[in-house]
Nucleic acid binder design. Structure first.
Lengths: 297, 297
DNA sequence: CTAATAGTGTCTTTAAGACATTATGAA
DNA sequence: TTCATAATGTCTTAAAGACACTATTAG
């Protein structure tokens, strides 16, 4: 193999030594991370359990384009790192957390997605226990805030074509942080027929979210909702000790649907192991604390 | 919003008009597509049904690096197209097929994956009915061939660590096309603990497959195997009319496991609708032909 | 005692696994 | 008639849905 010579009579070693990259145009490659966490709401009634909220981290843009809008944490990839390393590096700068659940989502490559130039975005999904995160919010240069995620109203339209199917899902996203309310709508169209599948995520409304980041957030939510049902991914959102009711609330907030207690425990308690710790000081029966169990799958 | 001015007193419009990209290093971005199809083997016994083989398309490299090795069809992305459009364009050049099932797999970004320079690969999974494909095999410049996929022996080792889990899966891949036999081994390590998940796909052996393409092929096989069980993705490999036994054989070849007929039909016949056509000329009872049904899911 | 959550029992429904039985056509 | 596949029936096992019932605590 080492002895093979190309049409110019060069070995691979010689070829590489002489190689000079062409000067065709190259894209900038950014990473953008949708990092989710779950926090508790205040509850005044001493008997009731506090509610849970799903949150994502956004950074206020301090320069053009999208000056004043809010963007996902991220940045450009360096030549000596993988996209995953870049995502982790940027996340550490923003959240102070080094070790975190991170999974590649999708590479968005519409040529016009950044008005400045050709930028692809390799997006990531991250999950973290809110207790571990130290958000340096209100940094002088960049303002980072956690926004509560609400996805009200998801409308679905299905057209059965002669030779295929068209499914349109309208997602309405609302991101809330104190007085700041950002929102957007994404129309996900799936066109399936003999000639293949065409998925488009079209941004139909956008208030205050930079670039095409609404689309990335919706994509991340879809992935999270899908995976929660058949993996133990949700446990990355939990602290070390938690009750099964806590876990159930996290599932409910992700899926947007109440779960039946008995069935939920049958299905998901296998992802956990009981400890001898119990909750206390609640106005009702104490609850056993569980811990994550590492499963073979 | 349009009135916002940045610290230099510029509006977004003015900023963009004056914007000049920095001259930091950018990666080249390639697309590489693993295109699967299923073909029939010869069967001399007139009573027996022909067997099925899973195949992928590879192109023989005519220049360095990896001169003489076989690579996935692909190429560089142009500034006016998405990665998906680039994958489709390259695939059309190779297979003559325009409309095909295509789904983004993963973006591989190890800085050293191409010995020439910094190249990321946005990989795609494609599925096609073998009847529709016209492979211009033996083109003068580039040689394209369909290789039979064999993934013999998949060894799994699981280590339970104190605070997590380590799962190592060894994949052995064999690609056969006439006398040409390519092979490779990939070690997939999943390290899961409180500090996140770490997936690595390490190439431990490689005979005749260019770049890190063994890894991409293994990744595509994993995705195909996973999705076949809960989607109708496999139907993209079928011709317009097919028997349920044909469909079952396709599932079996992808999953590498025999399926029980009754259970298979209960589960997957909902993805199809019966036609009034039947097979004929077989040395046994004729079989009903089915057609893909477009499901709402 | 009360309001709220914790935790379990059980009946029903649905899906999947296992395997057996009958049907049919070309040579 | 035979061989190989086609197609369906049925019993078993496992998982999920629905809902009711008992237990336990702070105030």
């Amino acid at each position: 193999m080492e002895e093979l010579k190309d049409k110019n009579g060069l070995t691979e070693e010689q070829f590489l030594a002489a190689y000079r990259p062409g000067d065709y145009e190259r894209p900038s490659v950014a990473v953008d991370t949708v990092i989710f966490t779950v926090t508790q709401t205040k509850e005044d009634n001493y008997r009731k359990l506090p509610g849970k909220e799903l949150k994502i981290l956004l950074i206020k843009r301090g320069g053009h384009p999208y000056l004043g809008s809010w963007a996902l944490p991220g940045g450009f990839v360096n030549p000596d790192e993988t996209t995953e390393q870049a995502a982790m590096r940027e996340l550490k700068e923003e959240t102070g957390v080094d070790n975190i659940y991170l999974e590649q989502l999708y590479t968005f490559s519409e040529p016009e997605r950044d008005p400045r130039m050709w930028v692809m975005s390799c997006s990531y999904l991250a999950l973290a226990d809110s207790g571990k995160i130290s958000v340096e919010a209100g940094d002088d240069a960049r303002q980072a805030e956690w926004f509560t995620v609400k996805t009200c109203a998801t409308e679905e339209i299905i057209n059965e074509l002669e030779d295929g199917l068209k499914k349109v899902t309208e997602y309405k996203l609302e991101l809330i942080c104190g007085d700041i309310i950002l929102s957007g709508k994404v129309r996900h169209t799936i066109l399936r027929n003999d000639r293949g599948v065409k998925n488009t995520y079209e941004i139909t409304e956008n208030n205050g979210i930079a670039f095409d980041h609404v689309r990335i957030i919706i994509y991340a939510l879809e992935r999270l909702r899908g995976k929660v049902k058949y993996t133990d991914i949700a446990l990355n959102l939990m602290p070390e000790y938690f009750t099964l009711t806590d876990l159930q609330r996290v599932y409910e907030i992700i899926l947007g649907k109440e779960q039946l207690k008995a069935a939920f425990r049958r299905k998901y308690s296998v992802l956990t192991e009981p400890t001898d710790k119990m909750t206390s000081d609640a106005g009702h029966r104490p609850s056993r604390l569980y811990r994550r169990k590492w499963l073979t799958e």
